[in-house]
Amino acid sequence: MAKVSSTKGAGKTQMTGNAAVRIQSSTAKANAGKVSSGTFAARAQTAAATKQKSSKK
């Protein structure tokens, strides 16, 4: 049986606000202006907001 590797959590690069904006913009353009919850774009925005909130403490 082939070994399957997971990339989840493999990277250590934090999501920046600018990166989240680019991802969300691209997703919205591709989906008639809509970004559904649960998509990668939505998760990226949440991660960037969480990072920004924790850095202000």
Results as ranks from 00 to 15, higher is better:
residue 8 K to C: 06
residue 10 A to L: 13
residue 18 N to L: 11
residue 44 A to P: 06
residue 39 T to Y: 03
residue 46 T to Y: 05
residue 57 K to E: 11
residue 4 V to F: 08
residue 15 M to W: 12
residue 39 T to N: 03
residue 11 G to V: 05
residue 9 G to Y: 06
residue 43 R to H: 07
residue 34 K to H: 06
residue 53 K to H: 13
residue 34 K to P: 01
residue 40 F to C: 00
residue 37 S to R: 07
residue 25 S to H: 06
residue 54 S to C: 09
residue 28 A to N: 06
residue 57 K to I: 08
residue 54 S to L: 15
residue 1 M to I: 02
residue 20 A to W: 05
residue 24 Q to A: 15
residue 50 T to G: 06
residue 23 I to T: 11
residue 53 K to Y: 13
residue 35 V to P: 00
residue 34 K to V: 11
residue 43 R to Q: 10
residue 40 F to I: 09
residue 10 A to G: 03
residue 51 K to H: 14
residue 44 A to F: 09
residue 57 K to R: 15
residue 49 A to S: 15
residue 18 N to R: 12
residue 8 K to L: 12
residue 6 S to H: 05
residue 16 T to C: 02
residue 11 G to F: 03
residue 33 G to I: 00
residue 7 T to M: 07
residue 41 A to F: 02
residue 25 S to P: 00
residue 42 A to T: 03
residue 53 K to W: 13
residue 4 V to T: 04
residue 1 M to S: 05
residue 9 G to H: 08
residue 2 A to E: 13
residue 42 A to W: 03
residue 6 S to M: 07
residue 32 A to K: 14
residue 14 Q to K: 15
residue 30 A to T: 02
residue 23 I to Y: 03
residue 28 A to K: 08
residue 15 M to V: 15
residue 54 S to I: 12
residue 19 A to D: 15
residue 36 S to C: 01
residue 4 V to H: 04
residue 27 T to V: 10
residue 45 Q to S: 14
residue 14 Q to V: 10
residue 54 S to D: 15
residue 22 R to P: 00
residue 8 K to N: 10
residue 35 V to N: 00
residue 7 T to Y: 10
residue 23 I to H: 03
residue 41 A to E: 01
residue 43 R to A: 11
residue 54 S to M: 15
residue 5 S to L: 08
residue 23 I to G: 03
residue 22 R to N: 07
residue 50 T to Q: 09
residue 13 T to N: 09
residue 3 K to V: 11
residue 15 M to E: 14
residue 13 T to D: 13
residue 22 R to H: 04
residue 2 A to G: 08
residue 8 K to Q: 11
